Simulated assay, not measured.
Amino acid sequence: MARRLALITGASAGIGAASARIYADHGYDVAITARRGDRLEALAQEISLRFGVEAIPIVADLADPAAPAAILEAVAAHGREVDALVNNAGYGLNGTFAATDWIDQRDSLQVMLTAPTELVHRVLPGMVERKFGRIVNVASLAGLVPGSVGQTLYAGIKSYLIKFSQSLHLENLNTGVHVTALCPGFTWSEFHDVNGAREMLNASTPAWLWLGADEVAASGYEAAEANRPVCVTGAPNKAIAAFAKLIPDDWALALMAGQGGRFRKV
């Protein structure tokens, strides 16, 4: 029997690259997609040599509405179907909503909300038919706490991914398809280098709040195998998420009011 195939978006670095290695280590072939072709080619070669599986690099920009269909067409051109999907591609924008360009906000919605939703919709029927599927939507702790300054769409998108995953989890009970929203907090990756917040975060956040991308990706894999609808990574983040549920909304919002400037350029 052919090995199962995992499709990972945003796979050129961070949680995406770590997820590709973890699925390969568990015997999956992988299709990895991102914008940076050189990174993808290098990762594909590493995975093939290290784990002895097939690694298919697919260069695509999820800001293009045609990208999800094109990615799955590339997978099909290799005679493959998607057995596991990790919707990981994402990034943060700097600035308040009014101070940013609409095109940038539109693209963030396409990359982090519309594209992952479309990918799930396209691969889910086949998973149900084959009675096997794993879907990990990489959300964030930001989706479980009140929104803060400078996270105008980001937090809302991540909250959507959590609710979306919970509903999918319930709709697919007893089908063999497992759905998980992975909710990391601060993670060592290129995410904060891209939005220019690395130096600010290093100065304002303690080391014990941070997890490695490998640890986060492993938690996502394990949660999907166990069919847990939501996985918050790390004890401190679990405590923060629980605390946010317990206190009144106006208290929680007041606590967040002054935090945006610590975590993101605004």
Rank of each mutant, 00 (worst) to 15 (best):
R3Q: 09
T9F: 12
G10K: 09
G14S: 14
A20L: 07
Y28G: 11
D29T: 09
D29F: 06
D29G: 07
D29A: 07
V30A: 05
I32K: 07
T33R: 02
A34L: 01
G37W: 01
E41F: 00
L43G: 05
A44W: 07
I47S: 00
L49I: 02
L49H: 05
L49T: 08
R50P: 00
F51S: 01
G52Q: 04
E54H: 05
P57W: 03
V59Y: 01
A60G: 12
D61Q: 09
L62D: 13
D64W: 10
P65S: 12
P65C: 11
A66N: 10
P68G: 04
A69N: 12
A70Y: 10
I71K: 10
A74L: 05
V75T: 14
A76Q: 15
A76G: 09
A76K: 15
V82G: 11
A84T: 08
A84F: 13
N88F: 02
G90T: 05
G92Y: 01
F97R: 05
I103D: 09
D104N: 08
D104S: 03
D104G: 03
R106D: 07
R106V: 00
S108R: 10
L109Q: 13
V111G: 06
A115R: 08
T117G: 15
V120P: 10
H121K: 15
R122V: 03
L124D: 01
P125K: 13
E129H: 13
E129R: 14
R130V: 07
R130I: 08
N137Y: 07
N137T: 04
A139S: 15
G143Q: 15
L144G: 15
G147H: 12
V149R: 15
T152E: 15
L153W: 14
Y154A: 01
Y154L: 02
A155K: 12
G156P: 14
G156W: 12
K158C: 09
K158E: 12
S159K: 15
S159F: 06
Y160D: 08
L161H: 12
K163Q: 12
L168M: 08
L168P: 04
L170S: 08
L170P: 01
G176A: 11
G176H: 09
V177H: 05
V177M: 07
V179R: 08
A181R: 06
G185T: 02
T187H: 00
T187P: 00
F191Q: 01
D193I: 14
G196A: 04
G196M: 09
A197E: 07
L201H: 02
L201F: 06
S204P: 00
A207F: 00
W208S: 07
L211A: 03
D214F: 01
D214Q: 12
A217Y: 06
G220C: 04
Y221S: 00
E222F: 01
E222M: 03
A223W: 09
E225F: 01
A226V: 09
A226T: 02
V230K: 08
V230F: 08
C231T: 00
V232P: 11
A235V: 14
N237K: 01
A241C: 09
K245M: 08
K245T: 02
I247K: 12
P248S: 06
W251D: 05
A252T: 10
M256F: 14
R262Y: 15
F263M: 10
R264Q: 14
